[in-house]
Design a binder for these strands. Structure first.
Lengths: 230, 230
DNA sequence: CGGTGGCTTGACTGGTCTCAATAGATGTGG
DNA sequence: CCACATCTATTGAGACCAGTCAAGCCACCG
């Protein structure tokens, strides 16, 4: 590994933050830095699950598909998130870069050994997995029971939480790391419906869309209301 | 605890199966047997998360709701499944009995202590949680991208896996532990749509419905086809 | 310039929901 | 054992939300 863990961009927030510098030597020795270009896929669903990783920068999507090609994004991963599925021989989901991405990649078997050796690492992974499960289930409520407008509003609020810079005057502004098609795949909608709902929120002055990718949340309270009720 | 672990109905399949008889003394001392009647709720979403448990018999639902009362069932729990959410102060989901239920209940704090003491227990819980996450994500694909017919077919196949008795002649038969309303809440549909799709599958001779709750799968292959393609 | 990919908008379709009526199950008390 | 209430399930008619198909816009780029 070219760069050592103590210089890692996400040293404190990532799973590895649970380990001391000396404990990290094992992981350090098996970890490799890896870059993915926007659009590149790290793992295909159905492949052998060969790697785990920590996400250093960028955004990854986790996606599942039906036999005839309909796609659903089942999770988005942000810097410091853990990537991969220990203890499974075969990958259930594809993992694809939505932006350029930097990863710290471990061979799965080696990472599993580290889990068994370092109880604290295992404990942190358990906590993260439990949180990921809560999040997945919250998204099930959204997919099953929310309207298109509620879904889009929820998505924007969610994105703001992960990416937002707060400017003065209570306006939140950020740049979407995803296309309309990808938003649709997260929300279980079509591109056209996403576009129409965004236009509607803009027309109602809850948000502004200076460019296609730029989003300004003008009235977060109202947006939250639309994300929750009919 | 009235009955000791060595006599437990799910001793081998449950999380506790990872522990030796002597290791079990801790859990044994804090575990309490508990019965729930059909319809009773163990935990309400938003409550303090006070308990964890192992499910001994019956079926539980995990559910989330919007502010205006729309409900989504985000998971079903069967005998030997683990119940609850360690390391969270507040419950994210309601836990309700769909049938009469027997549980082995632990105070959450005590169970968390046991996790920290017994690495093998923690390891087994991690593996289960990872599997639960895979399952939740598979269900996200279903909720977001499948049609009503595909959803109902998927549900029946899923139920068969958990409950089925195989009779002669490749026919699978079981009794639904859930009402049409609950099926609808699992699939993100309405009662009426579920009923119509079941009738349709029956008319097409893929299944039979001798009574409202009894299901016979007549052609599993064809049913699987309908669960996957348009 | 023309080509490409991403986005928006419109017209139309159709699958699912809503509302409503009815029938079947189940349980209770007279 | 029956009358009745209640809960569950089925079925139909109509409305509506989101999907489909199609056209056009815009920014970017060779």
């Amino acid at each position: 590994m070219a760069q050592i863990c103590s210089e890692c961009a996400v040293r404190d927030q990532s799973l590895c933050g649970s380990l001391s510098d000396t404990e990290l030597t094992t992981l350090n020795s098996i970890g490799r830095s890896r870059h993915l270009n926007r659009g590149e896929t790290l793992v295909w669903a159905g492949d052998d699950a060969l790697v785990c990783a920590n996400l250093l920068s960028g955004v990854l999507k986790l996606s599942a598909s039906t036999a005839d090609g309909r796609e659903q994004i089942v999770g988005l991963l942000y810097p410091a998130d853990f990537v991969g599925r220990p203890f499974a021989e075969e990958a259930e989901h594809s993992i694809t870069a939505l932006t350029d991405v930097e990863l710290c990649v471990f061979p799965r078997k080696g990472f599993e050994n580290a889990l068994e050796t370092h109880a604290r690492l295992e404990r942190m992974l358990l906590r993260r997995t439990l949180c990921a499960l809560d999040e997945a289930r919250a998204r099930m409520l959204m997919l099953g029971r929310k309207t298109a407008e509620e879904k889009v509003a929820s998505f924007l609020i969610d994105m703001a939480l992960h990416l937002a810079r707060n400017t003065a005057s209570r306006v939140t502004e950020f740049e979407l790391p995803v296309t309309r098609a990808q938003i649709a795949d997260v929300l279980g909608l079509t591109i056209e419906t996403v576009s129409r709902q965004l236009t509607k929120l803009k027309r109602d002055r809850l948000i502004d869309l200076p460019t296609g990718r730029q989003v300004m949340i003008l009235d977060r309270g109202a947006l939250r209301l639309r994300s929750e009720a009919a």
